[in-house]
Amino acid sequence: MNFQVIIDSLPRLLNGALVTLELVALAALAGFVLALFIALARLSRNPLLWMPAYGFIFFFRGTPLLVQIFLIYYGLSQFPEVRASVLWPVLREPYWCALIAFSLNTSAYTAEIMRGAIQAVPRGQIEAAMATGMSRLTRLRRVVLPQAMRIGLPAYSNEVILLVKASSLASTVTLMDITGTARTISSVNYMPVELLTTAALIYLTINFLLTRAFKVLEHLISGETRAAVNDPLMAAGLNTPEAMKKIQVK
């Protein structure tokens, strides 16, 4: 291990980390918003909604991300019509191509996580909400989505971590992310072990911080379940109406 090489290349690698973080943050954000619509469409009974959603998820989960990036970056640019279109200023840039590929890819996985989480909300809760006369949208907003978020968050944190690692593929379309920078520096000094180890440590740090952040978020949105654990009466099963009466009688 040549530590001087690691120290010398750190500033450039950290610059690459900024590119990685920016790509991941924007793709995660765009993917999340997109996934919400895809998941709702997927759950719809209308075939005009669920069938396209199913096809989208099927394609983006069933093909490798590298193939998707290449199709968007090298594939689309093969068509003169695309190069003449208004989309070309966007599709011309490797940055946007990578961002589009990452966003679409993560939205397919996130939509499936959301669908699973929404379906996991107990049926009784929805019936109770119906009984109180809530409209479909209010039910979604006040009962289903908040609970689905709690159920889906652990799986979603996994998806974001996978996205951080998958973002290393941006280096294949000339972007200078962490991996691209490490490969470029090691192509000049022939010390791939030093550079790739440092790159791996940077990814590890990013993912460590991300897992901690998701832990905190999970804690923040799990109000009721936490209360259940901390409440001795509840833990002992003594907070049912009958039990309460017995305690009061005594």
């Binding site: 090298y74 640019s77 093969q78 190069r83 011309r92 490797p94």
Partner: peptide, 11 residues
Amino acid sequence: ENHNLDLIAGR
């Protein structure tokens, strides 16, 4: 091959 593809694409 990839840089030639991008040369053709006009990037």
